[in-house]
Design a protein around this nucleic acid. Sequence first.
DNA 1: TATATTTTTCGTAATTGTCGAAAAAAGGTT
DNA 2: AACCTTTTTTCGACAATTACGAAAAATATA
Lengths: 109, 109
Amino acid sequence: MKGTNIGELEELVLLVVANLFDNAYGIGVKQEIEEKCNRSITISTVHNVLQRLQEKDYLESRYSDPAPERGGKRKLLFRVTPSGQSALENSRSMRESLWKTIPKVAFER
Amino acid sequence: MKGTNIGELEELVLLVVANLFDNAYGIGVKQEIEEKCNRSITISTVHNVLQRLQEKDYLESRYSDPAPERGGKRKLLFRVTPSGQSALENSRSMRESLWKTIPKVAFER
DNA sequence: TATATTTTTCGTAATTGTCGAAAAAAGGTT
DNA sequence: AACCTTTTTTCGACAATTACGAAAAATATA
């Protein structure tokens, strides 16, 4: 079922957009993922995911004014929607409840 | 990069296997996902993921004795490996640390 | 042997994850 | 103006994961 589920990378990007708040555009997200998550990712991948999340209504976007710097093109800034917030909260609480009921023996050797 | 990441469904199945501990075989996992997670999934999908997780060394398996019931075929029982446990703990702590730093404004309207 | 039941394996299609290269937009150079 | 450099987004393609239906295997019972 398309659009109803949320993939692993999609969830990560959603969390990073929430963190960056008003600097959440492609390159900002890429850098945050590489620094905070110690995971390499290309800018194309980030943009692809951002766009898909917007189509799923988990993100919304607007253009910033162009920055007065060399190459300072306008940025496409993203923000988590209420649906996006719910999706995040749902996966979090689902996983937490599963963690809580794991019997100790499951991880004994 | 194949085998290095862990998908959303893979993580869920890993958590469910840990929960079921010594009843973690295909159908048990399917039922647990449908009941606890309120998510429908076919048995083929579950088996596919179980197998891939074993190839990634996040699960190990052994055959049970056949059950003395009509159709009681031997079950392929799964168990989370130390690598699997690490993978689970890593994604959990990564996400938790991202949750902690989300500014309040990010979810304000 | 034939049938019904439980479980796993196989083949295939849709969605998600991934990247390289091209296109756009802006400021600086000549 | 014409050209180059930088920042950023868009496009096109392919790989990995997610998802099913149908077939095969193994077992008990008739």
